[in-house]
Design a protein around this nucleic acid. Structure first.
Length: 260
DNA sequence: ATGGTGGCCCGGCCA
């Protein structure tokens, strides 16, 4: 089973590149974030033509998450528990090939003194509660998406640059740690313990070409899946303009293979 | 390294 996650930064703008990448790389399941579409505008037929079922949770201009799967989309659900999250469109889940898959878009905290930062920490705490209430960590569960957190200092280009900034603060890393403590493994870091491999680069100032990025897009697998994970890679090429001329997102794809 | 670019959709907001 090939499982991938990609913050596409507008599926409306990115659909040609996403389809091009799917045809070339054959994911069984692709989790997408920041589709920026309403459910009505989601291009279900385009995925269907490639053999994928899909589920989407979005209300338009911001956020929006989706899953495309060619191994089934069963029992789809949207959001966390609260009414506030129902308007955030930051989580969609479905059972795909026997795995409970979640496409997750964690709020951006913006600044440490921002109310958005408080909301981010609260959202992460409720994500842990969501796991506690629904699943057994001994079952196959995957959380895939843009966590807007670099798990360690090896996941940013220069830790000194990020002192006092969001994405790296101790409370954010602790909140992520609490989610991992439920029984999930950041499988990419297990295959690449030295870090310094990134999934996001600011569009501005040529940061991609300078190597100035962060690893904030994660695939978290419960123990039965993590034990059978054979590969975890970041496809840096998908951050470039494609051979067909399609423009990139500011994030690229994380691809995980599981012997499942 | 507080500028810069790109997405939303046309005036700023968001990342």
């Amino acid at each position: 089973m090939r499982l991938a996650t990609w913050n596409v930064n507008s599926l409306g703008a990115r659909l040609p590149l996403v389809l091009e990448w799917m045809e070339a790389n054959g994911p069984d399941i692709l989790c997408m974030q920041e589709t920026k579409l309403t459910d009505d505008a989601f291009p279900r037929a385009a995925f269907s033509q490639l053999g994928y079922e899909s589920t989407h949770f979005g209300d338009g201009r911001w956020n929006g998450v989706a899953i495309a799967s060619r191994v089934g989309i069963d029992a789809p659900t949207c959001g966390l528990d609260s009414e506030a999250d129902r308007h955030g469109c930051r989580l969609v889940a479905a059972t795909c090939g026997g795995v409970r898959v979640h496409s997750v878009y964690v709020p951006n905290g913006r600044r440490l003194d921002s109310e958005h930062y408080t909301f981010k920490l609260d959202w992460l705490a409720r994500l842990r509660e969501y796991l506690d209430e629904r699943y057994d960590p001994a079952s196959p569960v995957a959380l895939c998406g843009d966590f807007n957190i670099a798990p360690t200092d090896a996941d940013v280009w220069d830790p000194a640059h990020f002192v006092g900034m969001t994405h790296v603060s101790e409370p954010e890393r602790a909140a992520l740690g609490h989610i991992l403590d439920w029984g999930l493994v950041d499988v990419f870091s297990r295959f690449h313990p030295d870090g310094h491999i990134f999934s996001w680069w600011d569009y501005r100032a040529g940061n991609f070409h300078k190597g100035l990025g962060m690893r904030i897009d994660l695939v978290l697998l419960s123990a039965p899946l993590a034990a059978k994970c054979t590969s975890a890679e970041i496809d840096r090429d998908a951050r470039k303009k494609s051979p067909a001329g399609n423009k990139p997102s500011d994030h690229t794809v994380v691809v995980v293979d599981v012997d499942w």
